[in-house]
Design a protein around this nucleic acid. Structure first.
Length: 136
DNA sequence: GCCAACGTTGGC
DNA sequence: GCCAACGTTGGC
């Protein structure tokens, strides 16, 4: 299966990148939106994921995670979850404003004002954000 | 805390 | 199956 790239949102007061780093990996559960669920189900092991802090100051992409277990059934079988593992913290976090200011990133669902909590991103978008954040 | 955007629910 | 009412998300 071809590798894909994603973005997940989390409120840092609920579950932050720090929490993921401490835990090593975590169950990405609680998704209760069909489009987001379908994205979870399309994830492959090894896919890379931008980790975004919503309802944060500033709202920003703060790190990178990796899919370490593909979608499996939630307690309620309508819903699915995956496991995500910590990969890296961005040396520089990338605020939403900076993403909006980048023409190359203007097509991201994040910018197009979607509240979707699990989004697909293109490889180019992923690499751009990673580079802006100080990783190669 | 406000509220716009969006998703879901439920009466018909 | 339509759509108004309601609930949630998330930036500001």
């Amino acid at each position: 299966m071809a590798k894909r790239w994603w973005l997940v949102k989390s409120e840092p007061g609920v579950y932050s990148l720090d929490d993921l780093e401490r835990d090593g990996s975590t169950r990405w559960d609680g998704v209760r939106n069909y489009q987001a669920r379908n994205n979870l189900r399309a994830m492959n092991q090894g896919d890379e994921v931008l980790f975004y802090h919503s309802n944060a100051e500033p709202p920003a992409v703060v790190g990178i995670a990796r899919v370490c277990r593909e979608a499996y059934a939630d307690a309620d079988p309508r819903w699915s979850l995956v496991d995500l593992a910590f990969v890296a913290r961005l040396p520089r976090l990338i605020p939403l404003d900076d993403i909006k200011a980048q023409p190359a990133l203007a097509e991201m669902q994040l910018v197009r004002n979607s509240r979707l909590s699990v989004q697909a991103v293109t490889k180019a978008e992923f690499e751009r954000v990673k580079k802006m954040g100080g990783l190669k």
